[in-house]
C-alpha cells in the first residue's frame, strides 16, 4: 500500500500558495521593480536557452524552407500556372487594346483628312494583293457598287497610293505608284518643276522629264500636280533621294522614296469627285476679288 506524507505536502502547498500570492501582489503593487529583477535573473538562463532555441529554429526554418520549396510545390505550380494564364490573358487584352488604339488613331486621321481635303471620296480597306507577279497592285473591299471606277486616284493621309485600274461590283484593283506601268503627274514642291512619276522595278518611284536647268536636289519633296492621275494637286508622292543627269540628255530624272509604303497600307481613300478641288480650295486660301 502506498504511503503518502500528507503533512509535508500540505505545508509545501501552503508555502507555495503564499509565495504565489506574494508574487501576484508584488506584480500588482511593484510591477516595474519585479520585472527588472526577473529580467536580470533570466539573462544567463536566456543565453543558455538561446543556443538550443537557435538550433531548433534553424532546423524548423530548413524544414519549412524545404516544405515550401519542394513539398508544397504543387500549390505553387498551380498558382504559377494560373498567374501565367492571367498574364497571357492580360497580354492579349493589352495587345487588342493597343491594336484598337492604333486603328482608332489611323481611322480618325483618315476621317479628318477626308473631311478637310476631299468631299467626294470613299474609304476602303485593303483585302489582298495582285494574283500574279507582273504587277504591283492592291485589292480594295469596295467596288463599282460603291461608285468606284477606273482611273480614280487612291490616297492615304501620308500620300498617293496609286489609281484604280479595274473594278468588280464589290472589289477594286489599285495599281500602285511604285509599279513601272503607272504614271502620275508630279511637281517638285520647292522648285515647282513638273514631271511624270513612274514606278521602278526596285519598288521605288522615279520623276522623269525634269528640266535640265532645274536645281532640284535630294531631300526635295515631290507632290501631285493634279494634271493626270485622278489625284488633286499637292498630295505627297515621295522625296528625292538621287538626281540622275546624263550628258547630252534633254531632261534629268530623280529617284524618289515613296511617302507611302504600299506593303503596309491598310485603309485608303478613293477620290470619286469628278471636279477635283484645287490646292487653294483645299487649303482654304481666299479667292482673289474679281
Amino acid at each position: 500500500m502506498r504511503m503518502v506524507n500528507l503533512r509535508a505536502s500540505y505545508s509545501a502547498r501552503r508555502v507555495a500558495l503564499v509565495l504565489a500570492v506574494i508574487l501576484v501582489l508584488g506584480f500588482l503593487l511593484l510591477p516595474g521593480q519585479l520585472q527588472s529583477v526577473f529580467q536580470q535573473m533570466g539573462s544567463p538562463l536566456g543565453w543558455i536557452i538561446s543556443w538550443p532555441l537557435q538550433v531548433v529554429a534553424g532546423i524548423y526554418d530548413r524544414i519549412a524552407d524545404v516544405w515550401g520549396r519542394y513539398v508544397a510545390l504543387q500549390e505553387v505550380e498551380e498558382e504559377n500556372q494560373q498567374l501565367k494564364r492571367e498574364l497571357d490573358l492580360l497580354k492579349e487584352q493589352n495587345g487588342q487594346l493597343r491594336e484598337a488604339s492604333v486603328a482608332t488613331e489611323r481611322l480618325s486621321a483618315l476621317l479628318e483628312f477626308k473631311k478637310q481635303v476631299l468631299p467626294a471620296s470613299v474609304a476602303a480597306q485593303v483585302i489582298g494583293r495582285d494574283t500574279g507577279n507582273w504587277y504591283k497592285t492592291i485589292i480594295l473591299n469596295k467596288g463599282s457598287s460603291d461608285g468606284l471606277q477606273s482611273d480614280q486616284g487612291v490616297i492615304t493621309p501620308a500620300g498617293v497610293v496609286g489609281r484604280v485600274v479595274k473594278t468588280t461590283a464589290s472589289t477594286a484593283v489599285v495599281l500602285l505608284v511604285t509599279d513601272p506601268n503607272n504614271a502620275i503627274a508630279g511637281l517638285i514642291q520647292r522648285t515647282r518643276d513638273e514631271g511624270i512619276v513612274e514606278g521602278t522595278t526596285q519598288g521605288q518611284a522615279r520623276l522623269k522629264y525634269i528640266p535640265l536647268l532645274s536645281n532640284a536636289r535630294p531631300g526635295d519633296h515631290v507632290v501631285t500636280s493634279g494634271l493626270v492621275g485622278g489625284v488633286p494637286r499637292g498630295i505627297p508622292i515621295g522625296t528625292i533621294i538621287r538626281i540622275d543627269k546624263e550628258e547630252e540628255a534633254l531632261f534629268q530624272s530623280a529617284e524618289l522614296s515613296p511617302e507611302v509604303d504600299p506593303n503596309r497600307v491598310e485603309e485608303v481613300l478613293v477620290i470619286q469627285s469628278s471636279s477635283i478641288p484645287t490646292e487653294g480650295e483645299r487649303l482654304g486660301v481666299p479667292k482673289p476679288k474679281s
Binding site: 494574283t131 504587277y135 485600274v165 468588280t168 472589289t171 484593283v173
Partner: peptide, 13 residues
C-alpha cells in the same frame, strides 16, 4: 477569275 483581281487584262489571262 485571277485576272479580275490583278492589273493583268482579262483576255490575256
Amino acid at each position: 477569275a485571277m485576272s479580275l483581281f490583278s492589273a493583268q487584262d482579262l483576255i490575256s489571262g
